[in-house]
Design a protein around this nucleic acid. Structure first.
Lengths: 294, 294
DNA sequence: TTGCTTAATGAATATGGTTCATCACTTAAG
DNA sequence: CTTAAGTGATGAACCATATTCATTAAGCAA
């Protein structure tokens, strides 16, 4: 079988000219190399080189192996380099799972400095999970989970990274815009826009409308934040989003946000990781970075 | 040092699932594989897999090696095959990949004289690729790729070998048969037959119907040219094929071809080869032969 | 020639790959 | 809960073989 050592020998010969020097460069004896190739020649049933006076002259087979070695050996070196980086925690991949639609904007702000700090690490963001975010985390589909629902599991640890208030968004010209907070019954004639998520997972339903046995006139699904806010801005309906996100958009759009009820809905975002990876450097650094961004 | 055996082990695990089965497939003991990897882990100073219940779960390093193996091992096999051919005094083999269904007829005309000229060379034609034709070329699954889409890659070189016009085929008795060319809207009530390829890769859609925001009444899939043309001949629908191919069949079938729109759809067929094999004699000769046949 | 160089070869050696037997653990079935 | 079957890890013993050593044969330059 063609082994790495054969490739090494052929390249060393190309580089140093003679078998003896090649042997020195590989910290082996000339005899070792000779035997090594002899054995391979027996296996492939064709000579690899011939003695031409004092020098070696490669046969067609030898040329082929040499060309192959030139192409493949650098890849071995590259892979080994990469493995070294992984060993030192400098490389790897971070697969982020998101269970929080509006957090995407926030995540982008976390990722940006992180990528600069860890140039060797590839980031991948996934948003759809067959068995839920926690399932994805436990089945090693993702490495960190960003979620507002820290569902307890023995093998998972959650770290709170930031909290915010969930607020109702209305157009500046909307009847409610004058108020400071909104009551459940005041939404009964409104059109509500939301991301495509089951109603029971939307806080506006589970924590505000449903407890008061209220609902909205209509519930429409929109995938992207921008479109959703544009619809709200022109008075086509209302939506519920994190306060900080609304503040951001309110700079350039005629929109305003209201507290939900007297208390407001306070939310916390958690980063979930597998407990046995609590020590991994580039994971910890991600969490630290996440805590910094507000 | 990363050795071939490690690559073999990782691929065997990917293929067979467990270490024990992987060991069987390599004709080694489970223990041998375990020790082998243990040693490598010591060298690269990072674990390659972890026991997760009854199964193995690869670490980042393990994934890396597995990916590397998938890329490199086929090249080892290819080189060994080549060495075997050299040993037997054969020039080699030519594995042709086809990404152009109707070109098959043309290819047969290229191959025929080529086989006479190079009696030692075996030809194999493949038409299905897991990672696309270019992937097959880069992974040494094939040696030349015949394609209408010369997708640029630094390690691949494309040589145009012939061009032709893509034409609409209809029965002689079809209403359109009197015309010289066809307009997009004239197809809206037609049944279209095509090879099993995604619509966006069919020129009749991407270059003719879609730009005009038109479509056909129905799109049916047929695998073979002969059946497709027979269906067209009896007036069951239309299809799109190279002009020269239609001319061939038109001798014995009641069919006729029309230009697409005023301009027609002009196509070019390329032969792609790996750049580092630009010098290989029997590859060059194939390209020369391909250029000759029209 | 002679001396220096090259690679090949056979035997001895030493490395290290492989197996065997066993353990620890998980999972599924009884 | 207990049992049985299946998983990979581990350490010692073994054995294959890669490597070295010593030598030979041959090319090349004085």
């Amino acid at each position: 079988m063609l082994e790495r050592i054969h490739l090494e020998i052929l390249t060393a010969i190309k580089e140093h000219g003679t078998l003896t020097k090649a042997a020195d460069s590989l910290h082996l004896s000339q005899s070792a190399l000779s035997h090594s190739i002899k054995k391979l020649e027996g296996q492939i049933d064709t000579p690899i080189w011939e003695k031409d006076g004092r020098n070696l002259r490669l046969t067609a087979a030898g040329e082929r192996i040499q060309a192959f070695a030139a192409r493949v050996l650098p890849q071995f070196l590259h892979t080994e380099l990469l493995l070294g980086q992984i060993a030192r925690g400098e490389a790897g991949s971070l697969r982020i799972g998101m269970e929080c639609h509006p957090c995407y904007q926030w995540l982008l702000r976390v990722i940006q400095p992180y990528l600069e700090q860890w140039p060797g690490i590839d980031i991948d963001v996934k948003q759809e999970f067959q068995f839920g975010g926690i399932g994805a985390l436990l089945s090693y589909e993702i490495d960190v989970l960003i979620t507002p629902d820290p569902l307890f599991k023995p093998k998972i640890e959650y770290i709170p990274v930031f909290d915010y208030e969930h607020r109702l968004v209305v157009s500046n010209t909307h009847a409610l815009a004058a108020q400071d907070c909104v009551l459940p019954e005041q939404l009964s004639e409104e059109v509500l826009f939301s991301y495509p998520v089951e109603e029971q997972r939307l806080d506006i339903f589970s924590q505000f409308l449903s407890p008061a046995k209220c609902s909205v006139k209509q519930h429409k699904i929109i995938e992207t934040t921008e479109i959703m806010l544009q619809m709200v801005a022109v008075g086509r309906g209302v939506c519920a989003l994190p306060g900080w996100l609304v503040d951001e958009y309110a700079k350039s759009m005629p929109i305003k946000s209201l507290r939900f009820g007297e208390q407001g809905i306070r939310k916390q975002i958690f980063v979930g990781i597998r407990k046995d990876e609590r020590q991994v450097d580039h994971l910890n650094e991600f969490i630290e970075q996440a805590k910094k961004i507000t």
